[in-house]
Design a protein around this nucleic acid. Structure first.
Lengths: 224, 224
DNA sequence: AAAAACCTTTGACTTAAGTCAAAAGGACAA
DNA sequence: TTGTCCTTTTGACTTAAGTCAAAGGTTTTT
């Protein structure tokens, strides 16, 4: 069966030599829909990557009720948290449709890490990077209101230029979309901030007039 | 100087033996406000954890303008992405206030990973776990509307119980807060769904009457 | 310079969801 | 049974932000 570890997103940006080394320890198999992949309390002898298909992770109560924890799709890996931690599988896994999985045996994976510490470093680096991206997204999504997002953005530009007066380097439609809103709304928000004396703006030249209020708008203590 | 690696969140949940081993290779130093920690293109000989203080990461343009990429605070690590990847530092770092940093030399850290592959596994496991949490948060924040969140929640309960009829195991105020809204709004949303024939509800007994519409409400193809 | 294309602003309207206040309901003890 | 307390629902109002349509402004092209 063809191995295509590039489909597993966490490994896809690894250097080709490591990709090959990892591929060599894996084992690809097909699971029919409904097939159990592992059960709760089975020893965590390895984790899985999904080349194709959908896997549901679930727990069963004594009464036979099932509690779905997660459903994973192509490109994702699962069970790695338990396996890395050296635990047994904490739940069951079942194929929801015909699926092609790649199995990464714990011991051989561990041996690879032992032999090639740079592989560990690369993997840690990749995860670290992704974590950063996600944290960024959460921060972004948490500022719900447009004025807050605009204020935060302006303060960031201020940090970046070191001035209270600077030029927007993109047009307002683009800025609107960057802030997750539409030009009309942005226009109105800008007008309001101008009327309230928080900023001055002419064309793409912006001047921050009331840093403290902007800072509070942005959720307080945004940046030093 | 006292070492307290527990303050660095990614290492805080590591087992004590590894905590000690890592502590042994680190070096704690104080930086006065304004002090440069490293410069762009310096070799990435190690990464840093912040025990206390604030660090700004920035780039300088040829004209001397600075562009702040990020500001890190207590408990965070920085520069690890470049260091793990074996790159030079891609930007400058400066203390924004008096800060206490812990330095993790790349070579010694790498040697530790080589010697203790289980440490690699644990770290990968921890990062994986955090990544999961963040992904979950992003998904949650992306469903903006209350009816969508309620529909998603009901479908999840359905998955979990395996029935179209089940009991809410918490009261409606708690449910409202779980969904990130308030009881009044939840009450109205429920009434609307009832009027539209999507659900039946009596006390805490819920029946899903139109799975397909609920599924669409929840953003389509929520769960198989 | 005139025309076309694009960007930005404004107005009028709609929708989602929050606030405040008050009315129903339900549970349970005295 | 009658209160008392808590949860839930309802109404009236407000706010934030989106849609649609149209009017001004800028550029760019010809």
């Amino acid at each position: 069966m063809k191995k295509n570890i590039e489909k597993i997103s966490i490994f896809s940006s690894l250097s080709p030599e490591y990709v090959r080394k990892i591929e060599n320890i894996t084992q690809v198999s097909k699971y029919l829909s409904g097939k159990i992949i592992f059960m709760e309390n089975d020893p965590g002898i390895g984790f899985y990557g999904i080349l194709d298909g959908k896997i549901k992770i679930f727990k069963s109560s004594p009464l036979g009720k099932e509690h779905i924890l997660h459903i994973f799709g192509s490109g994702e890996i699962f069970a790695e948290v338990a396996v890395f931690a050296g635990h047994d599988f904490p739940a069951n896994a079942m194929a929801l449709e015909e699926s092609t999985l790649m199995f990464f045996p714990r011991d051989r994976f561990r041996a690879l890490l032992a032999e090639f510490p740079d592989l560990s470093m690369s993997l840690l680096g990749l995860m670290s990077m992704r974590l950063r991206q996600m944290v960024g997204k959460v921060e972004e999504l948490s500022l719900k209101e447009v004025p807050a997002r605009l204020a935060a953005h302006l303060l960031l530009l201020r940090d970046n230029t070191g001035r209270n007066e600077f030029n927007l380097d993109i047009n307002k439609s683009q800025l609107a979309s960057l802030l997750g809103t539409i030009p009309e709304t942005l226009s109105r928000v800008i007008r309001k901030m101008k009327n309230e004396g928080l900023i001055g703006i002419k064309g793409s030249k912006v001047e921050l007039l009331d840093i403290q209020s902007l800072d509070e708008l942005a959720g307080g203590e945004f940046r030093l």
